[in-house]
Amino acid sequence: MNSDYILQHADALVKRVSKLIVNEPAARAALRRGVGLAPEDPRMLAAHRVVAPYVPVPTDYDVDRRRAASLWDVHAVERAFYAVAAIMAAQPRSARDQEAEATEEQTGEPQDSEALTEPTPAEESSATKDGKPDRRPNLGVSLAQAVFDKGLNADSTEQRLHLIARQNLDGVHRHLPRLVLYLRSDQVHIDWGILIRDLARWGHTPRHVAREWVQDYHRTLETLTRQAEQKNKNNTTDEEAEAA
């Protein structure tokens, strides 16, 4: 298994769950009960119908290549899929509706595809002005946007990010839902597919993922701040020119 393979399955699950949590209350309730629980917990039984078909498993090729199989903690991969599906279902209704509306605007039709091979709306729309694909945002980027756009306290947000970055697999699943649901209550965008991929990586390279989140938090916040300062500077210059 590699990151692209994980992400392909993750995006497919996100499509499926995004539809279910809007249109099927029973499925939403079954998934929501799983917040903070491991897949083997008996309370997760009803969630398997939705999540299990999308969880990638090692192929015979992976198993034969013992080093490759060891690089991916199969339990961490499975847990990532169930955890994010549960968090998506636990979002406030306003956040769920906002995501559904955004998806319909991007695709021109309601979400109804479950195919693993079709690109997600995030993949389809992620292009810069020069036509090159944007890097999809991880949790660090989302936190920086929340600080800049929503007025979250920068110091406390950074502290919460550092706390999560120090966690082992059990710890990150214990602390993450509250933070993500807090962001979604403010309708801060979360790339669910990327979050699944990163949590899947937490089993074998947690410090790498944590570093990426913290670095991207600071990079994004610095970039947004500079852009705002430059915009204000340009506006001031234009106003002075008009006054003259």
Rank of each mutant, 00 (worst) to 15 (best):
D155S: 01
L45E: 05
A52G: 01
E158Y: 13
D62S: 08
N23W: 13
K231N: 08
D238F: 08
R49F: 04
E40P: 01
E105Q: 11
Q215T: 13
V22M: 12
R16A: 12
K19H: 09
R135S: 03
E40M: 01
R65W: 12
L161V: 06
P133A: 12
H48R: 02
S125F: 11
P206F: 02
A243C: 08
N153H: 03
A80S: 14
P177F: 12
N234R: 14
N23L: 15
T117F: 14
V14E: 12
E118M: 13
A241M: 07
H75W: 02
Y82T: 12
S70P: 09
A80N: 09
E109F: 06
G151Q: 07
D4N: 01
V57Q: 09
V51M: 08
R197D: 03
Q167S: 04
P133C: 14
L7W: 12
E40A: 10
P92T: 05
E104N: 11
D41K: 07
Y5S: 02
D238M: 00
D130S: 08
D60S: 03
W192C: 01
A46W: 02
L45N: 07
R219A: 00
R16E: 15
P25W: 00
R67N: 06
L116D: 00
P133W: 14
N168V: 12
N138F: 01
V77Q: 03
T237R: 12
R16D: 14
L163N: 08
I21P: 00
K19N: 00
L13R: 03
I196C: 06
H75V: 06
H218G: 07
N138L: 02
E124N: 13
V141D: 05
D64Y: 11
D73P: 13
W202K: 04
D60I: 11
P119E: 15
V17M: 04
A243R: 10
L181P: 00
A146F: 09
R79Y: 05
A146Y: 10
S113P: 05
A30L: 02
L13Y: 02
